[in-house]
Computed example of a mutant assay.
Amino acid sequence: VELSLESRFRLAMLATVRDGADASGGDLAASVWGGWIAYQAPDRAAVRDMARRRGVEETMRAPWPGLRVRRLPPPRGLALEVGWTGEPASSSALTGRLAASRWRGSAARWSFTSRSQECVRTAIDALERGDDQELLHQVRRARHVLAELDDEVRLGIFTPRLTALCDAAETVGGAAKPSGAGGGDCGIALLDAAAATQTARLREQWAAAGVLPMPIQVHQTNGSAR
């Protein structure tokens, strides 16, 4: 079946939200479009309700409130490295613990959300301008914002291996942060693509800390976005 990229995403998202509206769909968008993208999640509860009331076919054609996806240029001189801690983690479990805590309606939540959104906006701008140094700075900022949340709410986002993953990237001149659920799982690092020795040192330090470098490359999907 020949489908546009957005139709593929919408079908996958409908299947995902059928059993719950917690998933952001960021992993689906990354898988469908590939490459580097700016993604804003739709209102998943509204989409699920629309599908129940109006059916899948009509929901596929209707506007989805909040959904935004656009391609971004890759970093000019940075390489992406991905490390896995060997400790699977559940995003829904962590977000569920946040929802059940007093943090949900607090000023700290507003501050975390605001600073995270600013990191994303500035990182997008850095990619569009080709400013690799600013992109590295925003990855570091995002790490610190997550670390402050972790210290405040005690979610366990930064396991010893994820902390070692991030620290190793800093020692070779790069930047890193947890990715995915946190509390184990994966982390990503950006570092100078032309410095093979830095990449080798990073992977050595990861291996020593029990972090497995993943053989992942960024690949852009072919096809129409609409």
Results as ranks from 00 to 15, higher is better:
99 A>Q: 14
97 R>P: 09
98 L>Y: 01
53 R>V: 01
92 S>R: 15
62 A>W: 01
83 G>M: 07
51 A>G: 03
50 M>E: 13
65 P>E: 07
49 D>P: 07
91 S>C: 06
48 R>E: 10
104 R>I: 06
79 A>I: 07
58 E>Q: 13
62 A>C: 04
89 A>F: 00
106 S>D: 09
78 L>Q: 12
86 G>E: 07
58 E>R: 13
72 L>S: 12
78 L>I: 04
102 R>T: 15
98 L>M: 08
105 G>W: 08
55 G>E: 09
79 A>E: 12
105 G>I: 05
73 P>T: 04
50 M>L: 10
65 P>I: 01
79 A>L: 05
101 S>T: 12
75 P>T: 00
90 S>H: 09
69 V>A: 00
69 V>S: 02
105 G>D: 04
101 S>H: 15
106 S>P: 15
78 L>M: 12
102 R>C: 12
62 A>D: 03
55 G>H: 09
57 E>I: 05
80 L>V: 10
70 R>S: 10
85 T>G: 08
83 G>E: 10
89 A>Q: 15
74 P>N: 04
103 W>P: 07
102 R>Q: 13
105 G>K: 04
49 D>N: 05
72 L>K: 07
71 R>H: 10
87 E>S: 13
105 G>R: 11
96 G>L: 12
86 G>A: 09
67 L>Y: 00
104 R>L: 13
80 L>F: 13
85 T>Y: 11
71 R>C: 01
75 P>E: 01
82 V>R: 12
74 P>R: 04
73 P>K: 03
86 G>C: 11
105 G>N: 10
57 E>H: 07
53 R>E: 02
90 S>L: 08
93 A>H: 14
92 S>L: 07
82 V>E: 04
50 M>K: 14
59 T>P: 11
87 E>I: 15
69 V>D: 04
56 V>D: 09
65 P>K: 12
84 W>F: 05
93 A>G: 02
90 S>R: 14
87 E>N: 11
101 S>Q: 15
97 R>I: 05
68 R>F: 05
92 S>Q: 12
75 P>Q: 06
62 A>E: 11
48 R>D: 13
97 R>Q: 15
66 G>D: 01
69 V>F: 01
65 P>L: 06
84 W>C: 00
58 E>S: 12
100 A>F: 05
90 S>I: 06
64 W>N: 06
51 A>C: 13
86 G>W: 02
48 R>C: 06
105 G>E: 07
68 R>Q: 12
77 G>Y: 13
103 W>D: 13
88 P>H: 09
59 T>Q: 10
80 L>A: 08
89 A>W: 03
